[in-house]
Amino acid sequence: MVLKRFNILIAGVGGQGLLTLGELIGNAAVESGVDVTIAEVHGLSQRGGSVVVHVRLGLGSSPVIPKGAADLVIGLEAIETARYIDYANKESLVVMDSFIWPPPLSKHPSLKQIVSEVSKRVNLFVVEASRIAREELKAVVTANVILLGCSLALSKELYSYISLEAAIKAVKRVFKGKAIEVNEKALIRGYSEGERLGAKRRNAQ
């Protein structure tokens, strides 16, 4: 039997909640009875470094996604999304925050340049997740969960592994106290944003 796994690469900057997002998707998989491995790849420091999390849904134990095998890339920051784009293939869906956080003392391409280059390669959706998190939910840390909500709305294949309901249940497993409520909101708000962006794209085509 050839195993089919659904591969999600989460890219961003340490401190943005990548590990939490991986744990959230993983718990949604547990809620859905889907097997999963989640590899957390981070370097020396707590914060500020480049971090990637490999989430692989479905049977199998090898934890790291091969380059070109990511079905979905969730980018919490533009430069990091661009850095790891070779994990995606032509068919991949990339859901990226419009947030850009350049490393200190660096010359870097602009968000516009990155969006233009990445969209030539993959099916890219740029989401104003950080803005929505900050302005509407008053919690900038929920941008990660908003992006998951978007991804669930934009990827039927992801949804076939984990539903919005399973993700909401997972929020209760992963967060404590007040954080549960705001992250549930972020998930639902992200889902509706994803539906909106999907419809907009379809209308444009």
Binding site: V13, G14, G43, L44, S45, Q46, R47, G48, G49, S50, P66, K67, G68, A69, I79, E80, A82, R83, I85, D86, Y87, A88, N89, K90, S92, P102, P103, P104, S106, K107, H108, P109, Q113, I114, E117, V118, R121, V122
Partner: peptide
């Protein structure tokens, strides 16, 4: 040969800068 083929890395000017861990 591998069964996967990734898209071309992003090649921009200025290039994607490295992001080593930094002091917070």
């Amino acid at each position: 040969s591998a069964p996967w083929s990734g898209v071309e890395p992003v090649n921009l000017e200025p290039p994607i800068p490295p992001r080593p861990p930094t002091l917070c």
